[in-house]
């Protein structure tokens, strides 16, 4: 039972980390109507910038400065890159962000090399906050939970209670109308893109010490981010949160329990082939839940697209 509690907490951390990445992307996606393939690359940039800053002045300034730098870089990319490409339609935009992702990966390898970076959590958070049945829960993860929840509340407040938030919400659904009303929609887009990438950068800073800082970190998280925003529903903050947590728990619990296909198949009344080594269904019989864990989010996405194409909390069809 205590293991369930540990897994719930671990899944919460994974989910909230995913949320930090998705909250920005879901706004960008619904605004531009185009997937930003480079979003996870900004996540990686955040980790690398923070690592670099931490070698000079320590972790904490890096936590503040790196996301800002990433956000400014994101805003510049929108202003001088995406906005020019935007005139030519969605496909060039898509290709642009795809190229950007490749470019960022190469740039990172050029400056930092291809090895793992020794990016570590700050000394002050290097202790076990508490432990459940011998399982230590690092203080750093508690800190991650607080930061992510804080960001969610701040975003929720800005989007629903402030004037800027209302303009963003309106611009998400009816950009032309909002522009006709005299608002500077391109500026709104640039701002949202900048803040979105800054959040991705912050997620990178938080994740770097835990998940490792290496050139492949964008690729590992890249596709799962899209799955999350599609499942949650485009442009919906609550959707991004719900989908992130769902996927976080799904993956944690799938990896934690060694349910085998054999158990499932025998429980529905099938019997194991006598000679498993030569059976055509050998692979099916030897599958375990941790092995199929990584594809479960994609399965979830297929189901959501089939039965609720607008996503769990979305208002618009994807």
């Amino acid at each position: 039972m205590s293991l369930v509690l540990v897994n719930l907490l671990d899944g919460l951390v994974t989910g909230l980390l995913l949320f930090m990445l998705c909250s920005g992307l879901t706004l960008i996606f619904s605004m531009m109507g185009v997937l930003n393939f480079a979003h996870a690359s900004f996540f990686m940039l955040g980790a690398y910038f923070a690592y670099q800053i931490s070698t000079y002045v320590g972790f904490w300034p890096g936590l503040l400065i790196a996301p800002v730098v990433v956000g400014v870089a994101g805003a510049l990319v929108e202003r001088y890159g995406l906005r020019r490409v935007h005139k030519h339609g969605h496909v060039p935009e898509l290709i642009f962000t795809f190229g950007l992702a490749l470019l960022i990966e190469e740039v990172v390898q050029f400056f930092w090399g291809k090895s793992q970076m020794a990016f570590e959590e700050p000394e002050i958070l290097k202790f076990a906050a508490f432990s459940i049945a011998g399982n230590a829960f690092p203080a750093y993860k508690v800190f991650m939970i607080f930061v992510a929840v804080g960001i969610f509340l701040a975003l929720l407040y800005i989007l629903t209670k402030t004037r800027v938030g209302m303009i963003i919400q309106a611009a998400l659904s009816y950009p032309e109308t909002v522009q006709n009303l005299g608002h500077n929609v391109p500026l709104v887009f640039m701002g949202v893109f900048g803040v979105g990438t800054a959040l991705a950068g912050l997620a990178g800073v938080m994740a770097g010490p835990v998940l490792g800082t290496f050139p492949g970190m964008a690729v590992v998280l890249g596709s799962i981010v899209f799955v999350t925003i599609v499942v949650g529903g485009l442009g919906s903050l609550w959707g991004a949160l719900a989908a992130s947590l769902l996927i976080g728990w799904l993956q944690t619990f799938a990896a934690s329990y060694n349910v085998t296909m054999k158990d499932v198949l025998t429980s529905v009344g099938l019997s194991e082939p006598a000679d498993l080594a030569t059976s055509a269904l050998r692979d099916l019989w030897t599958l375990t839940l941790p092995q199929i864990g990584p594809i479960l989010p994609y399965l979830l996405m297929v189901l959501v697209l089939a039965f609720r194409p607008q996503g769990l909390f979305g208002k618009r069809e994807t």
């Binding site: 293991l3 671990d10 994974t14 011998g134 998940l211 990896a255 934690s256 941790p290 990584p294």
Partner: peptide, 21 residues
Amino acid sequence: NELHPIGKVKDFTPYARKIMA
């Protein structure tokens, strides 16, 4: 005695918990 997908696991914490348990 278990095998995990190669290069696809984002977070090894659940595996670590199993090992502890």
